[in-house]
Computed example of a mutant assay.
Amino acid sequence: MPRFTTTDDVGLHYYDEGDGRPVVLIPGYGASADDWALQWGALRASGYRVVSLDRRWAGSSDRPPYGLRMARGGKDVQELLGHLDLTDVLLVGQSMGAGHIWAYAGLFGCERLAGIVTVDQSPCMVNRPDWEYGFYGLTMANLGTFFLDPANVLGTGHGRAWPDPAELDARIRAAGGKGAGSDITPDTYPLMFDHACQDWRDVVARITVPALILAGAESQFWPAEHAAATAGLSPLASSAVVPGAGHPAHTDAPDEVNGLLLGFASSLR
């Protein structure tokens, strides 16, 4: 089981299979690297090397009592790419995984990257006068307490129903993963709060590689219009909305997302 140790002494697990241009997959809050199992086969069959990271406090990675902040997540991505000596990377993140990508790009730039794909993550989670595409119900007035209610971590009643955990687990195992799991615990709430406080719009505006911003049409967290609004921040970005999909669009509609991923990846050649 491949692992590496970060500069702050945390062991992070990852999968690394296939050959070709590297596609590095970063999962969302509470999800493990196996959350991307429904993408692995399509990417490898199309000639890509597929690397999937277990973020700290997820999957088989360590759970240290420190480093639960987005900046450290960006550093972890940077150290993974350095550990594997990866360049010309297509970096893909879903939900908080997309936030890790923006943290990485903000800190280290895009020199190692060929492109970026984000899956259903608004760059600004707090609704503001100049941004109406944040988390439903989240404002500056309630930011400090909003995610202390565990129910809000799963949305506030918008969008489609969440997938059945047993059915999703079976599909992930059938695709070669170890199954669906969730590492959402009170220990990780500081990370969620830090995630919610960020505004990555300035980072998006300054990227130097193409980006594809995907949204689930029936996301439980925010309006799908966030994708077009985010893409509008950069001349290098484009957007698409995945019909019928919720926040985990890559597992709700894997065929559609895989087609978008492969189409975008082929455009980078």
Score class of each variant (00 low, 15 high):
residue 56 R to P: 07
residue 49 R to P: 09
residue 224 A to P: 07
residue 250 H to G: 03
residue 32 S to Y: 01
residue 243 P to W: 11
residue 234 S to E: 10
residue 133 Y to D: 10
residue 101 I to Y: 02
residue 143 L to W: 04
residue 149 D to F: 11
residue 263 G to T: 14
residue 58 A to R: 14
residue 16 D to F: 08
residue 168 L to I: 07
residue 255 D to L: 05
residue 61 S to V: 02
residue 246 G to F: 10
residue 59 G to P: 13
residue 251 T to C: 06
residue 86 L to W: 02
residue 42 A to T: 03
residue 185 T to R: 15
residue 69 R to C: 13
residue 25 L to C: 05
residue 155 G to I: 02
residue 39 Q to K: 09
residue 257 V to N: 01
residue 205 A to W: 00
residue 137 G to A: 04
residue 238 S to H: 12
residue 46 S to Q: 12
residue 64 P to C: 05
residue 195 H to C: 05
residue 195 H to P: 01
residue 95 S to T: 10
residue 167 E to G: 07
residue 3 R to G: 14
residue 81 L to E: 06
residue 104 Y to Q: 04
residue 46 S to L: 01
residue 193 F to V: 15
residue 64 P to S: 08
residue 114 A to Q: 00
residue 188 T to D: 06
residue 125 M to C: 07
residue 83 H to T: 15
residue 115 G to N: 09
residue 135 F to D: 03
residue 110 C to L: 00
residue 70 M to G: 05
residue 95 S to E: 09
residue 84 L to G: 08
residue 182 S to N: 14
residue 179 G to M: 09
residue 125 M to Y: 03
residue 152 N to I: 12
residue 123 P to K: 03
residue 105 A to Y: 00
residue 183 D to N: 13
residue 252 D to E: 06
residue 28 G to I: 09
residue 114 A to K: 05
residue 15 Y to C: 05
residue 162 W to A: 03
residue 210 P to K: 06
residue 173 R to L: 11
